[in-house]
Design a protein around this nucleic acid. Structure first.
Lengths: 244, 244
DNA sequence: CGCGAGCTTGATGCCGATCAATGCATGTGG
DNA sequence: CCACATGCATTGATCGGCATCAAGCTCGCG
């Protein structure tokens, strides 16, 4: 509990200083004073119900969004209509970095469950990060890590086979959920087989078959979207030892 | 020619203000005074001969590098040794953004021909960009565009077929070369079929066959690494109209 | 001149796509 | 409350694109 004046508490307002995601999100490692400055910048939240978009390709870019609760996917589509899921975002992760380059969003962001985000006006973030070197550094690290994450996805899409892809995907999900206090072994998928397939460069039938295969082999227990990881090692081996 | 004191000219030193890449590289749109500040930060160049690495995965991250002359590839590799080319960089493009997140480089960067780069000490860049809002903005845009570029590669790897991938690759290359004053239709590949294949998620034989197919169809003229684009439209159609 | 790295081309096989049918869970209106 | 619709998932049968294996070819270079 912080010792700040209770009169200043505004329950519906974003507040990094009291947010329980502050170890994951933008303010990692900032001092209390610095966080106050952040708080004064992040003055609004937005609620997005399942299936709605946070932003779309072509929308004017104004703000970044930090996921507070819920779950999102981002996707890009080619002229002819096919689309590619480029990522899944959960609490504490940042959305909208794609818009900085051209002042227009370059992908769609859709809520996969009812969600709330903190709105981070980007020009204010830039202004503030000119003052606060720590904030600047954190922001740069977040962007860089996004680039590195995408390198990993490129490796996956370019050189792994279906089982390896799904194993890598599940390990990544469980690891991120675990960092948020959830079980390492049980998870509920927020996305359809088709969305998983799009992300992994596979068709939904292949995703489904691979889930079934993992279940037959005793690696997973699969009940629709409820997944239990029974053999973490086996998944790990699939990802690393992919020569076999 | 600038009117600055000739005594201060150091031919072997980097100088954004006189660099003929200044419309492509970091200093896009900066004022002369701002460029002077950049010049004083970018004090060294480095020469990398063909086949040598500029940096490797795990190297301590200190600097970004702007390609001045030459051609690079970046690649990541999985534990089991397979690797994935994540990009090809030509003059005016920035290398090293992957290192910011963890203070260690997260990919290898190899020169595909004898090359020179400007060394941009990253902490100095951060310091300077806290002073110069324009520099800050440009840097953020460059990182964001890299993220968006990788979205495009994910789309390519996740949903395109071999011909579409190669067409997209060639169009991207010719477009970037054209922006540098080269022909729209004639180009010399700096990379092997295997490196193209790695980037596109294909085997070198498939790349070779697809080149041959394009030649048979009158879309390209292929003589080893010398390529001439005969039917730009056809390539474009392959990328967009990929339903066919 | 002969060697080797890189490229081309052919023959074959396999992984995942495609097509198709069924199953299962949720929700809605009669 | 049940009947039915709807969206999503599973499973099977078949097909096709690309990988793989293998053999020659080209060109630059010592």
């Amino acid at each position: 509990m912080s010792a700040s004046n209770p009169l200043r508490l505004e329950p519906l307002k974003a507040a990094c200083s009291t947010c329980n995601l502050r170890e994951l999100c933008l303010p990692v490692g900032m001092s209390p004073e610095q966080m106050d400055r952040l708080d004064s910048m992040i003055t609004s939240r937005r609620t997005i119900t399942r299936g709605e978009t946070l932003f779309r390709t072509g929308d004017a870019f104004q703000s970044l969004y930090a996921v507070r609760t819920g779950f999102f996917k981002t996707s890009v589509s080619s002229e002819d209509g096919r689309d590619q899921v480029t990522g899944f975002q959960m609490s504490g992760e940042l959305l909208g970095l794609d818009g900085i380059g051209t002042d227009r969003h370059a992908c769609d962001s859709v809520a996969l469950e009812d969600s709330t985000v903190c709105v981070i006006p980007f020009h204010q973030l830039e202004d503030l990060s000119r003052e606060l070197g720590d904030l600047q550094r954190i922001f740069h690290k977040i962007m860089s890590r996004e680039i590195v994450r995408e390198h990993g996805v490129m490796l996956l899409l370019g050189s792994m086979r279906a089982e390896e892809r799904l194993a890598a995907f599940l390990l990544n999900l469980t690891q991120r959920l675990h960092a948020r206090g959830y079980s390492q072994s049980a998870l509920i998928l927020r996305m359809t087989r088709e969305e998983i397939g799009s992300y992994l460069g596979l068709k939904l039938e292949t995703v489904s078959r691979t889930f079934s295969k993992f279940q037959d082999e005793g690696i997973l227990e699969v009940k629709q979207r409820q997944i239990r990881v029974l053999d973490h090692e086996a998944l790990q081996k699939l990802v690393n030892n992919s020569a076999c």
